[in-house]
Design a binder for these strands. Structure first.
Length: 893
RNA sequence: GGGCGGAUAGCUCAGUUGGGAGAGCAUCGGCCUUACAAGCCGGGGGUCACAGGUUCGAGCCCUGUUCCGCCCA
């Protein structure tokens, strides 16, 4: 790539792919585990291998990439481990759907063939999201890409399983679990999403067995009555005191079941009488255990009614509900049906209604692991940012239940347990055994179930680095520096990584957890395909460029608030990319062939130079502080503000005369500072806008290699110059006041006018004089004369303003419109009067004077003085204008 | 039912020890000004949800109310 001239506009389409390839070839992403540099490491939240990049991924990975690129610039050895997750249920569902199109089910293929098919699918389509991450610019170390079902990771899973089993932290048992009849597998509790849906509350009559009356129970799921083994009432409910201990006859089934009393029953709900179905409800199950009730399973694993459902056996659960209701009505058992909002559990993968049922499954005993996970956050070994998420973290871990880890699917890590046909014992081992560990019988068969995908994800921070081997990667990069993730997987993933990391590595998996928000649409709605409000990051990248998308997400990534995204915002920030491009273009046009200085002179002389260098220093500090504290929006906004509204709007405009002029000394200083500030701004912008900054970097003089290898601008405190900033403020104020007058008085930008500055002090006079050329250029003046107040007369036919101590007059002669000038002045005076009265009110308050800090009082006094003087000057000017207006009216009449 | 978060300009939102209400976008007016019309210059626009309290002083701290969102049961 040649240094020098740029095309007129930034054509990101041509640039992005080329730049990314350049990075990959240059090896900039690769982490050296033997490096002497301090380590910075991140493991990617592995996207589902079936996944397509959505805005959540785009945000998540942009933020990670910003941190990684920033730390590289700061001299760290950065490792960003990428990879994908085998996503057991989700992936299996995808392949099953494909088979279904050919009229096949996974059972038609059998386990082995089916798993083979999934692998084929994975090889063909699985890497898609990796390509999309590259498109986003992610600077992952692709040489270390991992997949949760890789050989190494699978081995880690086995070892962990076996160790936990040996330690008694994994057990097999019969418990109530959530069952997805569609996926035909057990789910962990947190894999069930409760959704409030309009449903019905059915009131059903249960006659007392002794014929003395009846009980009316209310239920949202009438089909489960087939499995009822009791009716429960509150022991203190006066309505039911008589019936406790009696039996009722279960309608349709003709079964006698007891009426029991338990304080669990909510007297306010329904009729206060609760049908008890221990086979299909968590609470009822507990009641069943407590009261020694029978448990009848009437709904099967496929969602079809079992033999125990008598005449309803073989019916789908929903069909059964219809039939039960119809039969109840026909038999006179149905009292009424009310509309009712009801929370229903859905499978988080396929959204089917889950069925609580009793089942034999494998569980992780989580409590001892959870204790350590909480301790590590409590004592600060891991910090959660923003802090408010710590509360959720603790709350979940405090109430944690055992984790059901077995899944009745085929795609995943098969549980390393073997059952003996002879002695019935279980052998759990890392290496496949050929005989029973207990009796030595060769008649053993492996457990059919696989492990929950999150079981392997929980090991991700160390399994990806080669555990259980003691690899140099683990030594150098574990614990990782930070985990960047959305709050939706705080429990699924973060908490479990904490548990596993602490247990197996004896150290936390990450120092910081940065929890970012969800991306929503402009109305704050969650993006979803069914709502049709999805903004596809790939389309956005196509239309506006990757940098624009990344910058938008970053600028809106405020801690603790969701990112509300709309296409217009992305389009808006594309303008910023273009601005960067064009500013660089201007600079390049003016430094071509020039001999730029190696060092900026200690005193560059001109105010503009000292000012921009001072401002630049402050921005460096702001940017560092923002990134160190995960204030991504502040990072983006600081640079946006500085670059556009200070560097471009003021600095570049102010140095144009130097750049275009023929003073070689002034020229080379301006070139040098313009280039150096620009170069360093590009470096600071690089983490968020990697592509355009790389492209421009390579065009700038004095650069080599990739911007990724540049050094983050160091802090030069001596460049901070508050005097220059204050002086500049006055100069900008003078220019601003003239522009304001021009704008309000409708003076064409093409018209050159004269202006006068009457200064209160010699210092001000000297300052304005020194910057006369700048004022003339930027305010588009014909000429500017500067004098001390009192010396020389005030211009008559002029519009005026006051900036600090300087009276500014724009000479308008015959074009001065007294009406509009009077109106303009009145507006300004009213504003000043209002401000002054507020300040004076404070200063006349005895309590304020005695109780407020002296500093604050002094500040108010100064303010009052300043406002007073300004007001006085404005009033005098208005006075003159009024007189002139009067004279003009007089002479006209 | 329990917990958490939010309410600031037309829109989206910043505002970190309580002492000047701000940005971007949108809007209005003026401009082809030798980097950029994807631009430049200027203007207008707010009872900081409501009601109390603490304080010399509250967008910020405390209490209550209303509305919205999320999590858990």
């Amino acid at each position: 790539m040649n240094k020098g001239q740029l095309p007129k506009a930034y054509e990101f389409r041509d640039v992005e792919a080329r730049i990314y390839a350049f990075w990959e070839e240059s090896g900039c992403f690769r982490a050296d585990e033997n490096s002497k540099k301090p380590a910075f490491s991140i493991v990617i939240p592995p996207p589902n291998v079936t996944g397509q990049l959505h805005m959540g991924h785009a945000l998540n990975n942009t933020l990670q990439d910003i941190l990684c690129r920033y730390k590289r610039l700061k001299g760290f050895e950065v490792l960003w481990v990428p990879g994908t997750d085998h996503a057991g249920i989700a992936t299996q569902n995808v392949v099953e759907r494909q088979l279904a199109q050919q009229g096949l089910s996974r059972y038609d293929l059998g386990r082995e063939k089916f798993v083979e098919k999934v692998w084929e699918w994975k090889e063909e389509y699985g890497g898609y999201i990796i390509k999309q991450l590259k498109r986003l610019g992610a600077s992952c170390d692709w040489s270390r890409e991992r997949f949760t079902m890789d050989e190494g990771l699978s081995r880690a899973v086995r070892i962990v399983f076996v160790k936990l089993y040996e330690e008694g932290l994994i057990y097999r048992g019969t418990r109530m679990i959530n069952w997805c009849p569609r996926c035909r597998t057990a789910l962990a509790n947190i894999e069930v999403e409760g959704e409030e849906l309009p449903g019905r509350l059915y009131h059903i009559r249960y006659p007392l067995a002794d014929g003395s009356g009846e009980l009316v129970v209310a239920t949202t799921r009438p089909e489960t009555m087939l499995g009822d083994t009791a009716v429960a009432v509150h022991p203190e409910d006066p309505r039911y005191l008589e019936v406790v201990g009696k039996d009722v006859i279960l309608p349709l089934m003709d079964r006698r079941i007891p009426v029991i009393a338990d304080t669990y029953v909510d007297r306010e709900f329904g009729t206060g009488a609760l049908k008890v179905t221990p086979g299909h409800d968590f609470n009822d199950f507990d009641l069943g255990v407590k009261h020694n009730l029978a448990l009848i399973q009437v709904i099967g694993e496929d969602g079809v009614m079992t033999e125990a459902a008598g005449p309803y056996a073989g019916l789908d659960r929903y069909e059964c509900r219809k039939r039960v209701v119809a039969d109840l009505e026909a038999g006179g058992y149905l009292v009424k049906i009310d509309d009712h909002l009801h929370r229903v559990g859905h499978c988080y993968r396929c959204k089917s209604v889950v069925e609580p049922m009793q089942s034999l499954q494998w569980f992780v005993r989580t409590q001892p692991l959870a204790e350590k996970a909480m301790e590590a956050v409590r004592d600060g070994r891991t910090r959660i940012v923003p802090e408010k998420w710590e509360k959720d973290y603790f709350q979940w871990l405090e109430n944690i239940e055992d984790w059901c880890v077995s899944r009745q699917i085929w795609w995943g890590h098969r549980i390393p347990a073997w059952y003996c046909a002879d002695c019935g014992e279980v052998t759990v081992a890392v290496e496949d055994p050929d005989r029973c560990g207990s009796c030595g019988s060769p008649h053993i068969t492996q457990e059919e179930d696989v492990l929950d995908t999150w079981f392997s994800s929980a090991l991700w921070p160390f399994s990806t680095m080669g555990w259980p081997e003691k690899t140099p990667e683990l030594t150098k990069f574990y614990p990782t520096s930070v985990l960047v993730t959305g709050f939706d997987i705080l429990f699924f993933w973060v908490a479990r990584m904490m548990m596993m990391g602490l247990h197996f590595m004896k150290d936390v998996p990450f120092r910081d957890v940065y929890v970012h928000a969800l991306v929503r649409d402009a109305q704050g709605q969650k993006m979803s395909k069914s709502k049709g409000n999805v903004i596809d990051p790939l389309i956005m990248m196509d239309q506006y460029g990757t940098d624009a998308l990344r910058f938008t997400l970053t600028a809106f990534a405020v801690q603790g608030r969701d990112v509300k995204l709309s296409e217009e915002r992305i389009e808006g920030y594309r303008h910023f990319v273009n601005k960067i491009w064009n500013a660089t273009r201007l600079v390049l046009m003016n430094v071509e062939g020039a001999r730029i200085l190696d060092e900026i002179p200690e005193d560059p002389g001109r105010l503009a130079h000292r000012w921009i260098l001072s401002r630049f220093q402050k921005v460096v500090q702001e940017v560092e502080e923002a990134l160190e504290n995960y204030h991504f929006n502040q990072y983006a906004q600081s640079l946006y503000q500085f670059f556009w509204h200070e560097y471009c709007d003021w600095y570049l405009e102010m140095i144009k005369p130097d750049l275009y002029g023929d003073d070689p000394q002034a020229k080379v200083v301006a070139q040098t500072i313009a280039v150096q500030v620009l170069r360093n701004v590009l470096v600071m912008l690089h983490p968020v806008m990697p592509f355009v900054t790389e492209e421009l970097w390579q065009k700038l003089p004095g650069t080599e290699g990739s911007i990724m290898q540049a050094e983050f601008p160091p802090v030069d405190k001596y460049r901070i110059d508050s005097g220059a900033e204050a002086d500049m403020e006055l100069v900008m104020g003078v220019i601003g006041s003239i522009r304001n007058i021009r704008g309000e008085m409708n003076i064409s930008p093409a018209a050159r006018v004269n202006a006068v500055c009457l200064c209160a002090t010699e210092t001000e006079k000297g300052l304005v004089e020194a910057n006369e050329r700048t004022v003339v250029d930027l305010a588009r003046l014909e000429g500017l004369s500067v004098a001390l107040q009192g010396q020389g007369s005030k211009p008559r036919l002029a519009a005026g303003a006051v900036v600090s101590g300087v009276e500014v007059y724009v000479l308008l002669d015959d074009v001065l419109d007294f009406e509009s000038e009077a109106a303009r002045l009145q507006k300004e005076i009213t504003k000043l009067e209002k401000e002054l009265s507020i300040t004076n009110r404070k200063l006349s308050n005895e309590d304020f004077l005695t109780r407020a800090p002296a500093q604050v009082v002094e500040k108010e006094r100064e303010k009052a003085e300043r406002l007073g003087e300004k007001l006085e000057k404005m009033r005098r000017h208005r006075q003159r204008i009024e007189e002139l207006r009067h004279d003009a009216a007089g002479s006209a009449g």
